[in-house]
């Protein structure tokens, strides 16, 4: 059992995977300085510039080169710096990485991990704060992972690196310094949710930083006598339908909470699927809590107007539990 931060967990995972497999290498801007969030700190000293490689400010090339290098027997870990900048490389991710295996009839796979630091990070404003995970869940061929804790960032990054599919791996910028215990040395399975709290009255499903809001809400609600189940989805595609279904069958109530814009967010997919499959088990309508459909503002009070908070989740849960 070791305590480490979310950022250190990822660094340790990458280090161990690079030791284990000489075909793993990382590429991105400013990696030789340890990465812009320090998430590669120490690795440049351990690995030469070939394996922890700097890159020009050419996001499309970084992604496209990774695709070509993955088709040629290596396992690149792509650093996009901010999820927002990965939009400069959407063709390479969506049209190339996600499609190559299929359109070439299975002749090759594209084992890349695309790290896209996401989410609100105080006053980063409209172009450095977005949570676009739902976009990628829409693309056949991609796996989408959004870890919320050090232990998951460690275990899921390991699995992502070992996975032969292109994995969009979205770490939340506000979680880099979060400390937690990492109690295993093994990869954690992709496509599996984590039950953070067991309960009987209501299910809260969330991922990434909003998981911590859901946990805080659960704490409050428990103090009020409710029994709350909290699920950290961890992998958005494929999402762990069976376990979410099991939970909602038991509680009959579901709130899906996420930081990204509610309209067209992944919560809509979960809500629609659960409403469809478990209609007869529901005691209340499935609720989504996401951001309003406005860009993210700079001034903290304005920025806060789009946040999904523990208070909002608790309030929504109370209303549902009256039904």
């Amino acid at each position: 059992m070791v305590t480490m931060t979310y950022g250190e967990a990822a660094k340790n995972a990458l280090h161990e995977e690079m030791q284990r497999d000489p075909t793993v290498w990382a590429l991105g801007e400013d990696l030789r300085r340890g990465g812009v969030f320090g998430q590669y700190k120490g690795l440049p000293e351990l690995y030469g510039p070939d394996r922890i490689s700097d890159a020009p400010i050419s996001e499309a090339a970084i992604m496209g080169v990774a695709v070509g290098a993955a088709l040629s027997g290596t396992r690149p870990v792509v650093e996009m710096r901010f999820a927002d900048f990965a939009l400069c490389a959407v063709d390479e991710l969506v049209n190339q990485a996600a499609k190559a295996r299929y359109m070439f009839g299975g002749q090759a796979k594209v084992p890349i991990v695309v790290r896209e630091p996401m989410g609100m990070w105080r006053s980063s404003a409209a172009q450095h704060s977005q949570s676009l995970e739902s976009w990628y869940t829409h693309i056949p061929g991609l796996v989408v992972v959004c870890p919320s804790s050090p232990v998951d960032n460690y275990g899921l990054l390991k699995s992502a690196i070992r996975c032969d599919d292109p994995v969009v791996y979205m770490e939340h910028k506000n979680l880099w310094a979060l400390e937690g215990e990492v109690d295993n040395n093994d990869p954690l399975p992709l496509g599996r949710c984590r039950f953070l709290r067991k309960g009987e009255d209501i299910t809260l499903v969330s991922w990434s930083a909003t998981v911590h809001e859901a946990m805080a809400a659960a704490e409050t609600l428990t103090g009020e006598g409710a029994s709350v189940e909290v699920i950290d989805l961890r992998t958005l595609w494929p999402w762990d339908k069976e376990r979410v279904f099991d939970s909602v069958k038991k509680t009959g109530r579901l709130i899906v909470a996420h930081e990204s814009v509610q309209a067209g967010g992944f919560g809509a997919e979960i809500a629609a699927t659960v409403s469809d499959v478990l209609f007869g088990d529901l005691k209340a309508p499935v609720k989504r809590l996401g951001a309003p459909r406005v860009p993210i503002a700079y001034a903290p009070p304005l920025e806060d107007t789009v946040r999904v908070t523990a208070v909002m989740i608790a309030e929504c849960a109370r209303a549902l539990m009256k039904e």
């Binding site: 499309a60 090339a61 992604m63 496209g64 080169v65 990774a66 695709v67 070509g68 290098a69 993955a70 088709l71 040629s72 027997g73 290596t74 390479e92 190339q96």
Partner: peptide, 10 residues
């Protein structure tokens, strides 16, 4: 072009 650069990189 990028795919070629990537293959050459590998």
């Amino acid at each position: 072009i990028h795919i070629t650069a990537g293959a050459a990189h590998a």
